[in-house]
Amino acid sequence: MTAPDPAYDVRWPWSDGAPMEPGLTCVFRVRDEARNLPWVLPPMLAAADQVILVDNRSSDGTAGLARRIAAEQGASERYQGLEYPFDVSRAGREHLATPPDSVHSLTHFYNWSFSHVRTTYSMKWDGDMVLTEDGIGVLRDLSWQLQGSAAVVAIPRHPLTVVNESEAWIDLGSRFIEPWIYPMGPGFTFVKAFEWEVREFPATSERIIAPEGLCVELKWLDTDEFAQWDGVEEFAQLRVQRKRREFEVVSALREGRGDDVPDLHRILAPPGVHVVDHVVDTWLPAARRPLVQPGRRHA
């Protein structure tokens, strides 16, 4: 299916013989992430060789804020901001009913976004995921160590629900392990799955799992974290156990039952320090390993 505007057709660099430079490009696909960007973008600009941020119809100034942050970090030459102007189907039934080559499909959106990468490796990253200093170091090392390996890298992330500036709850009941870093090539594109898009890779690819504690995924108790889903009843599927756990955590916190959820930990920041900064800079690096106990790990 051809896009309404040819600029949104997917043109992979290898199809045109475009040269690929050694390095790692981080690709964000975001909508209304201005609240998170001050924590999310600076560490990624420090970690990756290139950053591409694709804004999908934000109404909160996400795109402009991202450009300003890149300039403040002295990284404007390594930052590229793009816009994707189409409504994208929500995960779940809407996604399933949308043809994968439609501009409204998550699959097409992701492939179009990643088709702008010009380095040999690319990384999917979300607009609510914050790297620690250890995470920055790991990604810097991987940027050159992965070259020529064809390996895929999975990075555990730990959901952090922020109640207010001084209080948050970190979920260590599950270690969600998802591949985030892939080589660029015809065997590593996005395809349609039942609830969302999936990046394919050859069965022969080595899979590397990064250490725990490199990244937290920000959740805000005062926002609807499930608006991108076509109904929370989708969480009954075994395939989406991560979302089911997130829904259970948020429901418990809103009802004041956080202490009743196993492996959900309340964190209070010292006066004058935002709880996100406290968790990323102090609490998480000092936390006892393993963060997630054996038997509570989900791929």
Rank of each mutant, 00 (worst) to 15 (best):
R68C: 03
L65N: 04
R242L: 03
T25W: 03
R254T: 08
V249R: 05
L146A: 11
P270R: 13
G23R: 00
V117P: 13
L214V: 03
V280D: 12
T62L: 09
D16E: 15
I136E: 13
L238D: 15
G213H: 03
E94V: 01
F114L: 11
V138T: 07
W14P: 04
I177M: 09
A286G: 02
S122D: 10
E178L: 14
A210K: 07
D55I: 08
S102M: 03
G173F: 04
L131K: 05
S89W: 01
F190I: 02
A269V: 12
F86W: 06
H104A: 15
V54Q: 10
N111V: 02
L160K: 01
W196Y: 11
A203E: 14
P43E: 11
T161P: 02
T107L: 05
V138E: 13
A168C: 15
Q80G: 13
I155C: 05
R239Y: 00
R175N: 07
D277E: 15
E21M: 11
P183Q: 10
L253S: 06
Q293T: 12
H116I: 01
Q50M: 04
R140M: 06
L221C: 10
A63L: 12
G231K: 04
F226C: 10
E248M: 08
T120A: 12
F86E: 02
L253W: 04
F114A: 06
S58I: 02
E246N: 13
G81Y: 00
P290Y: 07
P38Q: 11
R245P: 09
W125P: 01
W283V: 04
T120Y: 02
E83V: 13
V138M: 09
D60P: 09
V198T: 07
